[in-house]
Design a protein around this nucleic acid. Structure first.
Lengths: 227, 227
DNA sequence: CGCCGTGTTGACCAGTTTCAAGATTGGTGG
DNA sequence: CCACCAATCTTGAAACTGGTCAACACGGCG
């Protein structure tokens, strides 16, 4: 069997994608504001989906729950991200508030009407869906084929790309269990791995819930499994 | 932390989705036939994407290769499936022939033109993308949170849904390494698990490469982790 | 017939999980 | 403002699933 290697095939950071595309912003005007408290559920898997959302502030997790309590988080959503912008049937996952969250919601019906009037809007949604497929395939590869250290390193780089506007410091709003369920690990393994990175001077915790990356190169080396 | 359980949240089989939608069939007429030999590459990650494909016969794997040879298969594609129907930029994964494959290809440009003339076509592509997101999130949950037995059981059920037209017998065209890379396991673990299922009379091998499911209930119980 | 690619099986090993005990933090009320 | 309590996080030790390495079996094909 030929395991054809491609040279640059490494897990990429998520697509920056069109999160704030001009024409999508028309939605913002018709949206109604909505608050969800920390750990409350925005919607559950299986429920009919008729609203799309845009996150104004806070963090949302999209997850699947197995009957025995196991959980897989498919995505963390941050301010500016759109959510549930496709599904016309039922939700295929639950959306829960990692922190207190504010979002805008607009009915799918209106979204559909807008798409018919503005064909380029549908193309943009298409691009978003496409970027989402790319991202989740990278996520799948991480969970399926990378070690615990590699996964945690990838996750930290992902957070820094999304959250560390200027420097290398950012708030980690999700708890250890959330991170574990995103990475397909246990809370304990996440905690141990972060401790390891701390003793290696790769990261530091200026405050609790606030993380600073001290050595990007080390993290990238770990995440790309070049170690 | 509240681990809100939803009662019916189990890994579903992949969406049967609109694989053979009427309006997509106009594509078939403009497509040109293409053959790819077993284990040859249709396209590699990073290459510019300008063609869409529909599989006529054979099986294709979509995968990501890590620099050190590790590989994650994100999807197996079967006759009737569409492939690379979105991307306008570069491919975010490689497509390789699991068996000898025949497919139809058509330029994205034509696809785009068609979409502009037939808006409902874009909606259909949208539905396909949406179904793909659902499927891959289930895949992610399987890889991230299910045990080896559960994953193999899920995989067999998936194959039977796609391939066992009438009964419970179907050909397994992919080899053990392919299956392992789809499930995030090793070849050996896949082999051992299949052997276990065989001794438990859950499956049988009428011929090599041909598999029969003897006890669907047992498989479903395993796959849903109700065991 | 014999080789080679693929699959199976065994023995051992390692990374991750599990289970459990502490430590730290944040929140609440005195 | 501090004390106390609950929740979260960290750390340790043991267990276990799945991985690694290696030998062998099977089947297809020259």
């Amino acid at each position: 069997m030929s395991l054809l290697k491609t040279p640059q095939a490494v897990i990429q950071p998520p697509s920056e994608g069109p999160r704030d595309v001009a024409s999508l912003d028309v939605l913002v005007r018709i949206g109604s504001k909505l608050r969800v408290d920390q750990n409350e559920t925005l919607f559950s898997e299986g429920e009919p989906a008729d609203q799309a959302y845009k996150i104004v502030s806070g963090v949302v997790r999209l997850c699947k729950h197995l009957p025995d309590g196991r959980r897989q988080i498919a995505q963390f959503l941050f301010p500016g991200d759109y959510l549930s912008f496709i599904k016309l049937g039922n939700h295929s996952f639950s959306a829960e508030a990692v922190s207190d969250v504010v979002l805008l919601s607009f009915p799918h019906i209106q979204l559909e009407q807008l798409c018919e009037r503005h064909p380029e809007l549908r193309a943009q949604l298409f691009q978003m869906a496409s970027g989402r497929i790319r991202d989740i395939q990278n996520h799948l590869t991480m969970v399926g084929r990378q070690t615990a250290k590699e996964r945690v390193a990838s996750f930290l780089l992902l957070l820094s790309e999304r959250l560390a506007a200027n420097g290398s410091v950012f708030d980690v709003l999700m708890n250890r269990q959330d991170i574990a369920d995103y990475l397909g690990l246990t809370m304990e393994t996440v905690s141990r791995t972060l401790s390891l990175f701390k003793t290696k001077r790769i990261i530091a915790f200026p405050d609790l819930h606030r993380l600073q990356i001290l050595n990007f190169d080390a993290l990238r080396a770990l995440a790309d499994s070049v170690e």
